[in-house]
Write a protein that binds this DNA or RNA. Structure first.
Length: 201
DNA sequence: TGAATGATGCGCT
DNA sequence: GCGCATCATTCAT
């Protein structure tokens, strides 16, 4: 009998993964690996902190007040990237969830660098080694993600999430960070074993 | 056409 | 811990 090896279980998450309730997708993303084939080389990181934003129920969601040119991607098919610009200097990476027509997404807040660490350091020279991917803005900078990568298909070959098999993590659910409206909703999930999660503001 | 605002990070104190 | 940098997007004149 042949046993498959752990490393053989690297598989790209299919669109059906994203086409589920946003809170489920958010918590399931923890411990998975974000992979980006950047122009500089292959980058990857283990996801340890995410937040859910759900259009019709959530005043903090960009799509709460209806569809605009900027947030259009969130209303489309699940399994696409939604990247937007904030505060005049930062980009944030989201994954679109739920079926087409329902505006919702998961914000990627923190991760632990895996492959391509030297490239990440080069792209964000001001970050110390341990803080390369701690914060939504830092992730985009270290990965070289800008609005040009908005609307990428996460089932394509450039940007996607990998399941690398079993891993034991302790998931904690709390309220979200850095927003005013809807800040009582416990829609933030993180891996309590990771030093990379955001500290209380 | 203009002004307010924000899902942040950084440097300075 | 506080305040600023900095600009796309949005909504109101």
């Amino acid at each position: 009998m042949v046993r498959s090896v752990k490393t053989g279980s690297c598989k790209k998450l299919p669109r059906s993964f994203y086409a589920r309730p946003t809170l489920t997708v958010a918590s399931d993303l923890l411990g998975k690996y974000l992979v980006y084939h950047s122009p500089h080389g292959r980058l990857s990181a283990r996801l340890v902190e995410v937040e859910a934003y759900i259009g019709d129920r959530d005043p903090a969601c960009h799509a709460f007040r209806g569809r605009t040119e900027r947030n259009a991607v969130m209303f489309g098919s699940p399994g696409f990237s939604y990247i937007y610009f904030v505060y005049g200097m930062h980009y944030c990476l989201n994954f679109v969830t739920e079926e087409e027509g329902i505006a919702a997404a998961v914000l990627i807040r923190a991760a632990e660098p895996e492959e391509g660490v030297e490239i990440m350091k080069r792209l964000s020279p001001r970050s110390s080694h341990g803080d390369l991917l701690t914060g939504p803005g830092r992730i985009c900078r270290a990965f070289g993600l800008t609005r040009e990568q908005n609307g990428l298909d996460l089932t394509g070959d450039r940007l996607y999430v990998e399941d690398r098999g079993e891993c034991e993590i302790k998931i904690v659910q709390t309220t979200r960070i850095g927003i005013r409206a809807g800040n009582h909703l416990p829609w933030r999930f993180y891996d309590s074993g990771s030093p990379a999660v955001s500290k209380p503001r």
